[in-house]
Design a protein around this nucleic acid. Sequence first.
DNA 1: GTCTATAAAACGATAGAC
DNA 2: GTCTATCGTTTTATAGAC
Lengths: 188, 188
Amino acid sequence: MPIQKVTREEILTKSLEVFRHRGYHNTSMNDLANAVGLLKGSFYHYFDSKETLMKEVLSSINIFLKAQVFPIAYDTTLPIEERMETMLKRFSKTVFSKDGGCIVGNTILETVNLYPQFKEILQEIITGWMDALTYMYEQTHSSEHAIKLAEQTIMEYEGAIMMSKLYGKSHFYKDCYIRTLERLTVHG
Amino acid sequence: MPIQKVTREEILTKSLEVFRHRGYHNTSMNDLANAVGLLKGSFYHYFDSKETLMKEVLSSINIFLKAQVFPIAYDTTLPIEERMETMLKRFSKTVFSKDGGCIVGNTILETVNLYPQFKEILQEIITGWMDALTYMYEQTHSSEHAIKLAEQTIMEYEGAIMMSKLYGKSHFYKDCYIRTLERLTVHG
DNA sequence: GTCTATAAAACGATAGAC
DNA sequence: GTCTATCGTTTTATAGAC
C-alpha cells in the first residue's frame, strides 16, 4: 500500500478555507491541490469533481453546525443571553474568516442562480440557523415577530461581511452582535 | 463607414445585466459578446479587457447614482419619507435585479480580496449610499446614531438579496423597506 | 483609395477531468 | 503527465461608408 499523504478530512478542511477565500469559480483544482500538498491529478483519487468536493465541504459544515452549534439554542439549562453569545461565536468561527468571507453567503450569491446543485444544502444550513435564532427570540417575542427578528439578524450578519470586506473594518460585526443580543430583551 | 451594430452605451447596459446575473469570474467574454450580438473578438474594438469593461460598468453605475439617485436625499423641498421612498426605489431599479442579484454586493464579495482593482469604485458607490442615508437619518437622530442606522440599512439590504436568492421569496426586501422607513421616525 | 465596425481565425495559458 | 475544452486576448481579413 502506498503512503497516504492526506486524509479526506484534511482535504475538506483545507478546501473550505480556499473556497472561502477565493470563491467557487475563481478556485481551480490546482489551487485546491496546492493547498493540501497534492498534484491536481492525485486529487481525483479522493473526489471525482470540483462540484462534488464543494458539496461535501458544504455538507460537512452543515453536519458540524447541526451537531455542535445549533443545539446550544435549545439547551434550556443555560440563560438565553449565554446561549446566544456562545452560538454566535461558534458559528462565526466555522463559517466566517478573518478576511471577511462567509462561505455560505458567498456561495449562495455566486452559484444559486446558475448552479442549483448547491441550493438544497445551502438552504438547509441557513434554515438551521434561522430555526435556532427563531427559537431563542420566541422566548421574548411572538412567533411571527421572532421569525422576522431571526431573518433580520441573518441579513445583517451577511451584510456586515460585505462591509467588513469592503472597508477592512470589523466594527460592523460587533454592532451586529450587540443588536442581536439587544433584540432578545428590548421592545417586545 | 460600415454599419455599427452596437454603441458603447448598449454594451455597458447589457454587460451590467450579464455580470449581475452570472458574476464576474463566471462571465466569459463570449457571454458578454453574445449578449450584445457580437463575436468575442470584435468586443475588443470597444474595450481592451474584461477588467476595463467591469470598471466602466461600475463607474457608469456610480455616475448614475450620483446624478439621479443620491441627490434626492438632500432635496429638502420634499418630505423626508418621500425622499427615502423615491431613493430606495430608484436605487433598487439600477443596482438590483428580479432574480435577486446586486451587482455591487456580488462584486465586492467576489473580487475585493484578490482583485483590488475594483475596490476603489465599489467603495465610492457604497460610501455615496451611506452618506445619503446618514444625511436623512440625521434629521431625526444624532450624527453617530445616524451613521449606525445607515450602516444597518445597507447591511440588511445586502442580506435580503442573499435570502431572496436562496429562497426565491421577495418579502425580505419588503421587510427591509419597511424597517428603513420606520427608522426615520421611531425610537430616536 | 481610406477608414472602421465586425467577422474569422488563431494565440498561449489554463481550466476540469482522467 | 495528458487530454480536450475554453479562457482572455491578439491578429488578420472582410465588408461597407466616405
